[in-house]
Design a protein around this nucleic acid. Structure first.
Lengths: 190, 190
DNA sequence: TATTCTGTACAGTTTTTACTGAACAAACTT
DNA sequence: AAGTTTGTTCAGTAAAAACTGTACAGAATA
C-alpha cells in the first residue's frame, strides 16, 4: 500500500527543484552585471506564482528587507522585473519579466553600448591629445612613439566601430532575422 | 624664440595620454570578466614598445611582482597576452596580443559559452526532477505548480538555445560575414 | 490631525576580494 | 656543487563590497 505524502513534504521537494535551477542561474548572472544574491532574488520571483512584496521576498530568501529593496532596484534598472498592481494591496508588488529574450538582451545591450561609447570617446580624446603632442614635440624618438600609439589606437577604434554595429544588431532586433527566436513548449503566453 | 622642451617632459606627456586611455579601458574590462587592475596591466602592455618582464610591469604600475604574476596568468588564460622570446633575456617576456577582434571576442565566447552550457544542463536536470516529482505527487495544487514551472523552464530553455546559436555565430566567425571587420588606419600589420 | 504602514537612507558590521612580502622551488650560471 | 636569478606559493593585511538594523519620511487610514 502506497504511503500518502504530505502537502508540506511535496512542496518542499518542489522548492528543492526550483533551488537547483536558481543556484545555477545566480552563479552566472554576473555576465549580465548582476550579483549572485540579486540573481537569486530574480530566480525566486521567476518561479513565484504571482507578484511578490518586499516582505514576501525577505521571508523567501531569509534576508533583510533593505537588501530586497536595493536588489529590486537593481532589477528594475535592468528591466528584469516590473511593478505589478493588485487591488486592495497597499504594498508595492513586483514580478519577473517572463520574456527572457527581452530581459536579457536588454541588459546586455545597455551595458555594452554604454561601455563601448565611453571607450570610443576615450580613444578619440587620446588621439587628439597625441596629435597635439605630435605638433609640439621635438625629439624624434618621441615622435616615433606617438606614431606607433596612434596606429594602435586606430586598430582599437576599428574594433569598437565593429562592436558598435554588432550591438546595433541586437538593439534593432535584426539579430532575430539571422538567428530566429526559438519557441518554448508553453501552451499559451501570459 | 621657442623654448626647448626636455625629453623627460615630452615623455611624461606621452605617458599622460596613454594613461587617459588605459584608465577608461580598465573601467570597462569587467565586461570581459577582467578586474580593473588587470585591465590596467593589459593597457600598459598594449602601449609598451616591446615585450615586458614582470619586473618591468611591477615598476610601471608600482605594484608587487606577485600581483603581476597573477595578473599575467589571468590575461594568458583569457588569451589576451602571449609569451614572447628575445635571445639573451632570461626573464619571461609577455606582450599584448594586438588583434582586438581575436582577443576580445575570444574572451567573450569562452565566458558566455561556458555559462550557457551550465545553465542549459541545469534546466535539463531541473526539468527531470520536476517530471519525477510530477509522477509521485498527489496534491492537485502541487501538480499545477509543477506544470507551471515546467512551462517557465521551457521558455528559458528556448532562450538559451537561441543564445547558443548566437554564440556560435562568433565562434565560427560567421559574424564577420554579417558585420565585416573594420580596417584600422595602420600602415602594416605586425 | 493623529496613527499606522511601507519603502529607503544611513551607519555599522560582516564577508569577500585584492594586494603584499617573505619564503621557497626550479632553472640558470659559474 | 655552490651561488644567483626568477617566478610562484602562501599567510597575513588592507581595501571593497554585501548585508543588516535602526531611524526616518511620505503615503494611506482613521
Amino acid at each position: 500500500m502506497r504511503s500518502q505524502s504530505s502537502y508540506g513534504a511535496e512542496l518542499e521537494q518542489l522548492e528543492e527543484s526550483r533551488n537547483r535551477f536558481i543556484s545555477e542561474l545566480s552563479n552566472h548572472v554576473h555576465l549580465y552585471g548582476i550579483t549572485p544574491s540579486v540573481g537569486r532574488l530574480y530566480g525566486t520571483m521567476f518561479f513565484s506564482d504571482g507578484p511578490m512584496t518586499l516582505d514576501d521576498m525577505s521571508e523567501a530568501l531569509g534576508m533583510s528587507k533593505t537588501s530586497m529593496s536595493t536588489g529590486i532596484r537593481a532589477l528594475l534598472d535592468a528591466n528584469m522585473v516590473e511593478r505589478a498592481w493588485e487591488k486592495g494591496i497597499r504594498k508595492d508588488l513586483y514580478q519577473a519579466d517572463e520574456d527572457w529574450y527581452k530581459s536579457f538582451t536588454n541588459v546586455f545591450i545597455n551595458r555594452w553600448r554604454n561601455a563601448t561609447e565611453l571607450n570610443r570617446s576615450a580613444i578619440e580624446e587620446t588621439k587628439e591629445m597625441l596629435n597635439d603632442l605630435y605638433a609640439r614635440v621635438e625629439h624624434p624618438e618621441i615622435i616615433g612613439k606617438i606614431q606607433c600609439d596612434l596606429g594602435k589606437l586606430s586598430d582599437a577604434q576599428a574594433y569598437y566601430e565593429w562592436l558598435d554595429e554588432v550591438i546595433s544588431l541586437f538593439e534593432t532586433g535584426e539579430i532575430f532575422d539571422i538567428v530566429p527566436k526559438k519557441k518554448g513548449s508553453r501552451k499559451h503566453k501570459m
